[in-house]
Structures are given as structure tokens and as C-alpha cells.
Amino acid sequence: MGLEKIDIVEQREKKLSPQAAWTGGVAFTFFIALLGYLLALIPGFNYVGQLACAIIIAIVYRQIFGYPEALRSGITFSSKRLLRVAIILYGLKLNIATVLSDGIGLLIRDAGVIIFAIFATIWLAKILKADKMISLLLGVGTGVCGAAAIAAVAPIIKSKDEDTAISVGIIALMGTIFAIAYTILRPFLPLDDIQYGVWSGMTLHELAHVALAAEPAGEDALAIALLAKLGRVFLLVPLCFVFIFLMKRKNKGSEEMNTKMEYPWFLVGFIILSILGSYVFGHSIEVPESVMNAVFTLTTWLLTAAMVGLGLNVNLKDLRTRALRPLLAMTITSVALSIIAFFIV
């Protein structure tokens, strides 16, 4: 009976046309993204967020039902192409003019945060004998802007989909825990609202985490927190070019590796939309707020569908053996970063 079922599944997979496999795969990633959105509406899960909820569902699906091979082409499209589109659109969230005019001091401190997060995580990973790729991605996510930073750097450093998905899942979960911890600690900290906002923006992982932690402290705290966070997002572009340089230098002399080194054109799109969003839209060209909100919503859905595609590649057996030590390294780094930034603020 079991063999008959396998034969039936194989026959169905063979009958799927390339177009049907592509359409079905993309639709499947958005369907799980929808389930993640609905799960995030439930009290408790709302702190975790749509992105992390969708990844969790995708990982659980993989462990129970296996990878949907018949839909691989569409799922791969979501995890590769839609991911790049989401990163490009993410550029609209970065206001370069605000960062450069009001946040130069914060920008310098943000650079220090990124350098510390990456090197500290890598150093701890060596001591703990943790997986190097996952640890590097977690260091980037901790230092810059969580999932978006990991997604931008991953194709440059040739990260496997599974490593990228594991890193995004960890950063989303730990960022949520830290954001909740910040809100609990806030009344007991000897910081005024502005200082607390700067501290949150300099150290928390995602934009959403910064907003979650800073909002209870008031509008001024939220504004300065987001400004501090935007400085870290701003530094994502030069960081990516540093990784491009390092990868080319590492692969120098290897003709085969050099041919595989693709230029991340999505970063150009990210820069262009950042410039348009900062100096054109809302200035020489009026764009309704509803349109911008719609674009931001689309960005979230595209990024979530892409992460679903990555999450479907995660094997929990490997997760147990490869993710625990990088998680420990990243947690120690995040705690140290919070303490150091607290005294700097």
C-alpha cells in the first residue's frame, strides 16, 4: 500500500507542467505567508511577528510532509527572485536625508555597533566551535537590521538556503525576546526617553523590534530610536560591498569561483529607491501616504514568502547539531552589545 502511494505521488509530480509547478510553488509560499500572518494575529504570537511565524510553519511543514518537490521551481523563485525584489523595495524605508542631516553622530556609533556585533560573534563562534556561516549571518543580522541584512548578505557570501533560513528564524525569535525584555526593563533603567530610544535603536535587531520597544516610551523616543536604526540600515550597503571585496579577494586565482561570483544588482536597486524615497518622493513628486503604505505592505509579504521558501529547506536534525552554538554566540554578543551601548548612551 505504501509503495502504491509513492507511485501515485511520483506520477502526479511528473504530470505537472513547468508553468503549473512554478505558479503552484509561488502560490504555496504566499499561502504559508498568509498562515503566518493569521498566526501573528493571535495574542502572544503577535510579538513574534508574521515573518517568524511563517518560517516556523514552513519548517514544521517540511518536517511532517517533506519538501514539495513538484513545486520546487516556484518555491525557488520565491526564495531567490522575490527576496531580491523585497530588498530593493526595502530601500524606500531608508531616508538618507534624515540620516545624514540629523544622525551623523548616531551613524558613527552605529558603525561601531556593526563592527562589534560581527567580530564578536565570529570570535565567539571560533571559541564555541560553532558553524561559521550561520554565525557570520547572525553577526550581520545582529549588527545591521535582522532578516533584511541576512537576506542581502547571504547571496554575496554564498550561503546555503538552509543556513539563511535558520539565521533568519533565530534573529527574528531572539530579537522579539530582546524587544520584550527592553519594554519590561524600561521603567527601572536610569535613562530618559531620548536615551532609551537611542539605546533601543542602536542595539535591537529589526525595525519592528525597535518600534515595539521604543513606542511605550513616547513619540520622541520612537523617533530617535528609528533614526538610530536607520543609520544601521544605511550602513548595509557599504557593508555588502566590503563582503563583495572580501569574497573576490578570497577567490582570487580561482577561475571557477570567479565566474560564479555574481554582482548583487539588487543593491543598486536598493540604493536607487533609497535616493528616490529620500529626495524625490514627497518632494518634487507627491506620493500619497496610502500608496507608500501599500508598498511597505507588499515588501513585507514578498519578504515573508521568500523566507517561507528558505524555511522549507530547513532540516531540524541539522538544526539541532548546527544552530545551537551559533545561537549561543549570537545571544552572548547581543547581551554584551546591550550592556556596552547602555553605558555609551
Rank of each mutant, 00 (worst) to 15 (best):
L34A: 15
L34S: 13
L35D: 03
Y37H: 15
Y37I: 13
L38W: 11
L39V: 13
L39P: 00
A40E: 07
I42E: 09
I42M: 11
P43Y: 01
G44C: 09
N46P: 04
Q50Y: 02
L51D: 00
L51H: 00
L51G: 00
A52I: 12
I57M: 01
A58V: 03
V60T: 06
Y61E: 05
R62P: 07
R62W: 03
I64K: 09
Y67M: 01
Y67A: 00
P68I: 02
P68Q: 03
E69H: 09
A70S: 11
L71H: 01
L71F: 05
R72S: 09
R72Y: 02
R72Q: 06
S73G: 01
G74L: 01
I75W: 01
I75T: 02
S78R: 02
K80G: 05
K80P: 03
V85T: 09
I87F: 06
L89R: 08
G91T: 05
G91E: 04
L92V: 04
K93W: 08
L94E: 03
A97G: 10
T98L: 14
V99E: 03
L100C: 02
L100R: 03
L100G: 01
I104R: 15
G105Y: 09
L107V: 08
L107I: 07
G112C: 12
V113E: 07
I115E: 08
F116V: 10
F116R: 08
I118T: 12
F119I: 15
F119T: 15
W123T: 14
W123S: 15
L124T: 02
A125P: 00
A125E: 00
A125V: 04
I127F: 15
L128Y: 08
K129V: 05
D131I: 10
D131E: 15
D131H: 15
K132M: 12
M133V: 07
M133T: 11
I134R: 08
S135Q: 07
S135K: 07
S135G: 09
L137R: 04
L138G: 02
L138A: 06
G139N: 12
G139P: 14
V140Q: 00
G141T: 11
T142P: 01
V144M: 10
G146N: 04
A147R: 03
I150P: 12
A151Y: 09
A151N: 15
A152L: 06
V153A: 15
P155I: 14
I156T: 12
I156D: 07
S159K: 08
K160F: 09
D161W: 12
